[in-house]
C-alpha cells in the first residue's frame, strides 16, 4: 500500500511540476505534446494520472505528519481543474465553456467534501475559525478579508464593466443538410443514387469491397496497404484513379487542407476557422461520397440558407475541375485518410 502510494505521490509531484513549468514557460510548453486525434482520451488519462498523484501525495504528506486540511484539498483541487482547463487544453476553450466546467467541478468538490458529516465539519472548520476570530491570527485574517473581499469584488466588477473588445462568438453548422440532387456541368446527380464512377475493380465494375481492401491502414501514420502502391504502373482500376485524384489534390486542395489532409495547409493559418480536417473522424468519415461531391462542386457559396450559419470560403470547384476530376479527388481523400465512405443504407 505504502509503496503504491509513494509511486502515486512521485507521479503526482512530477506531473504537477511539469504542468506548472509548462504554464510558466520554465520548461518548453511542448514538452508533453497533445497527440493529434487522441486528444480527449489523452486528457482523461492525464487527469486520472493527476488524481492518482494527488491521492498519493496527500497520503504521503499525512503519513509524514504534514496532512493538508480538507479545506485546502478541496480548494486546491478545484484550482487545479480550472488551471488545467485554461492552460493545458488546446485549442483553447472559450471562457463560457470553462465557466460551465468550473461550476460542475465546484459542485463535485462540494459533494466530495460533504460526503459525510465529519468531512463537512472538517471542511468548514477553517471558515468558522476565521468568522469567530478566537485567536490573534484569525482576527488579523478576519480584518484582512473584511477589506480584501470588497476591494476584489469591486475591482472585478470594474473590469467586467469596462468596454471590451472580445471576438464575438459565431456558431457554424459543420454538416449542413444536402439537397436531393445537384446539377454539375449541365448534368443532374441525385445524391441518393449516384455512385463514384472510379470506385471500380480492374474489370471496371463498381466494387466497394474491392476498393475498401486497398485503402490505407488505420493507426499511426495511416500508411498504404502493403502491395497497394498507387504509383505502381501496373495498376488498373481503383488505385490508378487514386493516384490521379492525388495529383489533383496536390495541385489544388493541399494549400488549405494540408499535405496530410488535416486542414493545416500552407495558407491555413490565415483562415478562421482553419480548413476542414479530413483525418478527423467527424468529417468525411461521417458522410457519403455524393455529399462530398456536392460540397466540392458547389463550395461554400453553394451551401443552402437553411443550413446557416456557416463559415466557408471554399470555392465552387466545378469552376476549376471537371466532374471526373472531382470524383477522383474524393476517391483519393477516402484512400488517404483510410475511411470508408458512408453508404445510404
Amino acid at each position: 500500500m505504502k509503496a503504491l502510494m509513494s509511486v502515486g505521490a512521485l507521479v503526482g509531484a512530477i506531473a504537477l511540476l511539469l504542468l506548472v513549468g509548462m504554464i510558466l514557460d520554465v520548461v518548453p510548453s511542448n514538452t508533453v505534446r497533445l497527440v493529434e486525434g487522441y486528444m480527449p482520451i489523452q486528457m482523461l488519462l492525464e487527469v486520472a494520472c493527476f488524481v492518482a498523484g494527488f491521492t498519493g501525495l496527500s497520503y504521503m504528506l499525512s503519513s509524514m505528519g504534514m496532512a493538508v486540511p480538507r479545506f485546502w484539498q478541496g480548494i486546491g483541487f478545484w484550482a487545479f481543474v480550472l488551471l488545467y482547463l485554461k492552460f493545458r487544453v488546446y485549442p483553447p476553450i472559450p471562457f463560457s465553456v470553462r465557466a460551465m466546467y468550473g461550476t460542475v467541478s465546484l459542485v463535485a468538490v462540494f459533494m466530495w467534501v460533504s460526503a459525510n458529516e465529519d468531512d463537512w465539519k472538517k471542511f468548514k472548520q477553517p471558515i468558522m475559525n476565521v468568522l469567530d476570530a478566537q485567536s490573534g491570527a484569525n482576527k488579523m485574517l478576519r480584518y484582512a478579508y473584511l477589506v480584501l473581499i470588497p476591494v476584489l469584488v469591486g475591482f472585478t466588477s470594474f473590469n467586467a464593466m469596462r468596454p471590451k473588445s472580445e471576438e464575438p462568438v459565431e456558431l457554424r453548422t459543420v454538416h449542413p443538410a444536402p439537397p436531393a440532387s445537384t446539377k454539375v456541368h449541365g448534368k443532374t446527380y441525385t445524391l441518393q443514387t449516384s455512385q463514384n464512377p472510379y470506385r471500380v475493380n480492374p474489370e471496371g465494375k463498381f466494387d466497394q469491397e474491392y476498393s475498401n481492401k486497398l485503402i490505407v491502414e488505420q493507426g499511426m501514420g495511416r500508411l498504404m496497404a502493403p502491395n497497394a502502391n498507387p504509383f505502381d504502373e501496373k495498376n488498373q482500376g481503383y488505385l490508378k484513379y487514386v493516384k490521379e485524384g492525388g495529383e489533383i489534390f496536390f495541385q489544388n486542395c493541399h494549400f488549405c487542407h494540408g499535405d496530410n489532409l488535416n486542414g493545416r495547409g500552407l495558407h491555413a493559418f490565415a483562415f478562421n476557422p482553419i480548413p476542414a480536417n479530413f483525418t478527423d473522424p467527424g468529417t468525411i468519415a461521417q458522410l457519403q461520397e455524393t455529399f462530398i461531391f456536392w460540397r466540392v462542386a458547389k463550395g461554400g457559396i453553394g451551401l443552402p440558407n437553411e443550413g446557416f450559419p456557416w463559415a466557408s470560403v471554399m470555392p465552387p470547384w466545378e469552376q476549376h475541375l471537371t466532374v471526373d476530376e472531382i470524383w477522383k479527388v474524393i476517391l483519393f481523400e477516402y484512400w488517404h485518410t483510410g475511411y470508408y465512405p458512408r453508404t445510404w443504407d
Binding site: Y145, L146, I149, P150, V151, V153, G154, F155, S157, F158, M161, R162, P163
Partner: peptide, 17 residues
C-alpha cells in the same frame, strides 16, 4: 457608470459581511 457601480457593489459586500 463604470467608475461608480464598482464602489456601490463593494459597499454592498461590506454590508453583507
Amino acid at each position: 457608470e463604470v467608475y461608480i457601480y464598482p464602489f456601490v457593489i463593494a459597499g454592498g459586500i461590506v454590508l453583507l459581511e
